[in-house]
Design a protein around this nucleic acid. Structure first.
Lengths: 216, 216
DNA sequence: AAGCTTACATACCGGTCGGTATGCCCGTCA
DNA sequence: TGACGGGCATACCGACCGGTATGTAAGCTT
């Protein structure tokens, strides 16, 4: 295993484990064991467990950025982009009942805000997500799909809030049929998409999300 | 300290501590220390830490049920009820930046779903909250405040999702001004309240929420 | 080939965790 | 007044935690 391979293996294993349970429960020992490396290797690459989490956050975005750029590709109409986003959320987080909620924010809630770096990583994470939402909203608005124009940055946050809430709900109530109804309904309502356009788009994005490879 | 006092003290202390940080970080020792009792007393009243969490969940509802019944009192108009709810969420969770997110679902995400009792307690918690939402929506609909009638049970869930998402966001970005804008906006949008009625109600509920007493 | 660095492996550290065993104190009731 | 049991307090347990100290084998440099 080359150098970069070992580090990436640790990153991916940590992602998968934290994803499946949570930051506090998953120990360094277990991450190492699953990754097939030793603790010495771990602390050769990361100065602490919290540091690993920060790097994993960055790594996570690097991985799914491709997916997001694909979802929000300009070749897709705004409605298609929205539908793609919905499909993506299902696939990446609700395709089986072992993955519930957003692990990074669950984790963030566990680490505590005293760790400045962790907090910063989480802020970046959410801000990036909101930025993607904003682009989508602008496209929807420009395309005349929205009932009215408002504060689009706020709308981007609203969408973010809602998605996070739905994902968290899925943790306790992993009823995928309910979620499959609630997620689009809430998004269309929050965005204020004109009723004529509800559920009118078909997904143009069919590739398997890269993030799935993180799961066991 | 009488028998029931000791147990309640433990319950309240645990609530406050978990509220301020999270389940994993707060240890039994610290709960005991803060409550001014010993570990022996703790394990006299609770069979485990997870069991404490379950009882605390029930206790929590018992405490805030008074507030909720007050907020959703039939003497208030539906719009007033909605405004009361918004105010309640601010007061109980956003009045200072030490309280972020819903501690019970943060905690639930930490304990793990392998503990059946904990999962059950969380399900009850969310279901009760959704039931309150449903009553509000029915009242709003009956009063003609909504743009259209839909699946009200679903709407109740949407509102629940959204509130949870906003509260979680507040954990990472404790910017109360943003939240104060986002929370009502999202709720009005999700509920589909007619624009004429947006922000038209004044709160009729001014009492200090009982739950505040749990905070340090 | 000598010397140095990288990339680990192994063994182990002090501390903390949730949980338990035991016994004392004190109110109750015979 | 003495036996008894609920309501604790104290002392302690083994497991496990994140993190470290030290060793070492392989490669790169000179």
């Amino acid at each position: 295993m080359s150098v970069v391979e070992t580090k990436e293996k640790l990153l991916e294993t940590a992602l998968a484990l934290i994803w499946q349970s949570n930051y506090s429960v998953v120990g360094v020992n277990e991450i190492c064991k699953q990754a097939g490396v030793t603790k010495g290797a771990f602390y050769h690459h990361f100065e602490s467990k919290a540091s690993l989490f920060c790097e994993a956050t960055a790594y996570y975005w690097q991985v799914i950025k491709k997916d997001l750029d694909n979802i929000f590709s300009p070749v897709n109409s705004p409605l298609e982009q929205l539908e793609n986003l919905i499909q993506f959320l299902f696939r990446s987080k609700l395709s089986d009942n072992t993955v519930r909620g957003c692990p990074f924010f669950n984790a963030g809630a566990q680490i505590g805000t005293d760790d400045e770096k962790v907090l910063e990583a989480l802020k970046n994470l959410s801000q990036t997500a909101i930025t993607y939402n904003l682009a989508l909203i602008k496209a929807l608005d420009a395309g005349g799909y929205l009932e009215r124009s408002g504060d689009m940055e706020q709308q981007a946050r609203l969408v973010y809030h809602y998605i996070h809430g739905v994902m968290s709900y899925a943790y306790v109530q992993p009823d995928i049929n309910t979620i499959k109804k609630d997620l689009p309904e809430g998004l269309y309502r929050l965005l204020g998409v004109k009723r004529d356009y509800w559920f009118s788009a078909s997904p143009t994005w069919e590739a398997e999300p890269a993030i799935l490879k993180h799961q066991a």
